[in-house]
């Protein structure tokens, strides 16, 4: 399991290929890539700054990936999240999951993103046409995360 929190840009294609490299037991790789949009809540966005809580960020992501490993039979799991200044079109986050069969990979990837969005200490501040603006948390994200705790 790999967790990376970095300012540097990354290549999602290279990350996907690395999940399969040298392991022919991997039958399925599912990945999610989140990108910076140029528009949000009716305003143009020219870029954003991602703040985080160094120390807690790594711990929170470690907890989330450990839980995903407990719930599904995974061969590899990678979470990569950028911090600092980002421009529209750049990837922000990558979650990649490798397993023997697709179901576990699909579900684990979905789970990790839902928990990351509601439990990992990152905050987005957008540079909008109306000035800098902190992005507010969304109820739909909490509802999505809640799906995983239902019996």
């Amino acid at each position: 399991m790999a967790i990376r929190v970095q300012e540097a840009a990354f290549d999602p294609g290279a990350e996907v290929n690395a999940l399969h490299a040298a392991n022919v037991g991997v039958g399925a790789v599912v990945s999610f890539v989140g990108y910076v949009r140029d528009f949000n809540e009716g305003r143009e966005v020219s870029g954003m700054f991602l703040e985080h809580y160094p120390g807690m960020t790594e711990k929170a992501l470690g907890k989330i990936t450990a839980e995903a490993q407990q719930r599904w039979p995974l061969l590899k799991l990678e979470v990569l999240h950028r911090v600092g200044s980002l421009e529209p079109g750049e990837p922000i986050v990558f979650v990649g999951v490798a397993s023997a069969h697709r179901q576990a990979a699909f579900e684990a990837c979905d789970f990790v993103m839902d928990y990351l969005k509601t439990r990992a200490p990152f905050w987005k501040k957008e540079n909008t046409s109306a000035g800098p603006k902190w992005v507010e948390g969304r109820e739909s994200d909490h509802a999505a995360a809640g799906r995983w705790t239902k019996p």
Partner: peptide, 10 residues
């Protein structure tokens, strides 16, 4: 102890 607004990563 840390206080912060709702997280918005991802």
């Amino acid at each position: 102890v840390a206080f912060f607004p709702t997280v918005t990563g991802g």
